[in-house]
């Protein structure tokens, strides 16, 4: 028979302990480019609610990772993406939607100064609850881990979210919820393993 002529995706390899040299060189003390990419998500006055997301990535022994690289990608407050693939309208020109953090040098805690995303439809047209996509790489992680940040204070939208509602282990939904701490700060800790293991996606 004929052969399908698809290529295979390049195999993933760990980002290793020195991913910050490549992806956030200024953070590593290597000043070649201007600022590190993804360090700033708001390039001017933005529409919507400005929030801060803080969190820490923990390994299976409860130790904070200090060598991770965390990226987030999200819609603006109106639910539009600042992307060439966005066909529904013009996203907020002062909001990139993309953040990248090497975590704090001493504690590993990541911080994203962003806006609360608007709702985005899924394939069948149903609305998804407001969420932020997250991608985590580090030494010891063979292929980037994908998860999502939802918001604990969006109970109504979360209760109807097509993805959250289909999780078999409903007691794990809480691992995907960022919790408000006041003053616009939300906490979203990630557990790579253990009883509080975060839900990760194959998407």
């Amino acid at each position: 028979m004929q052969k399908l002529d698809y290529l295979k995706e390049s195999p993933s390899q760990t980002a290793g302990p020195y991913v910050h040299i490549g992806c956030t060189p200024n953070f590593s003390g290597i000043e070649i480019y201007g600022e590190d990419l993804g360090a700033v998500m708001k390039t001017g006055p933005v529409q919507g609610e400005e929030i801060t997301i803080k969190g820490t990535v923990y390994d299976g022994m409860g130790m904070a990772l200090k060598d991770a690289l965390i990226e987030i990608w999200q819609a603006d407050a109106a639910g539009l993406f600042a992307s060439a693939n966005e066909t529904r309208g013009q996203a907020d020109p002062n909001f990139t939607g993309w953040g990248r953090s090497p975590g704090d040098m001493d504690t590993g805690e990541f911080t994203f100064e962003t806006v609360k995303p608007g709702a985005v439809p899924c394939v069948d047209g149903r609305m998804q609850a407001p969420h932020i996509s997250m991608w985590i790489v580090a030494r010891g992680i063979n292929i980037g881990l994908q998860t999502r940040i939802y918001f604990a204070d969006e109970e109504e939208a979360n209760a109807k979210d097509p993805l959250l509602t289909r999780l078999e282990h409903q007691n794990r939904v809480r691992t995907l919820l960022a919790k408000p701490e006041g003053d616009g700060v939300y906490r979203f800790n990630v557990h790579l393993q253990g009883p509080e293991e975060t839900v990760f996606f194959d998407v």
């Binding site: 390994d59 299976g60 022994m61 990772l65 819609a75 993406f81 693939n85 966005e86 985005v120 439809p121 899924c122 394939v123 998804q128 580090a138 030494r139 010891g140 992680i141 063979n142 881990l145 993805l163 289909r166 999780l167 282990h169 794990r172 790579l192 393993q193 293991e197 975060t198 839900v199 990760f200 996606f201 194959d202 998407v203």
Partner: peptide
């Protein structure tokens, strides 16, 4: 100690 043990949750890509 950095590998998730639960199965990944699969779903089709969205926007």
């Amino acid at each position: 100690k950095r590998s998730p043990q639960a199965a990944l949750i699969s779903f089709p890509t969205t926007l």
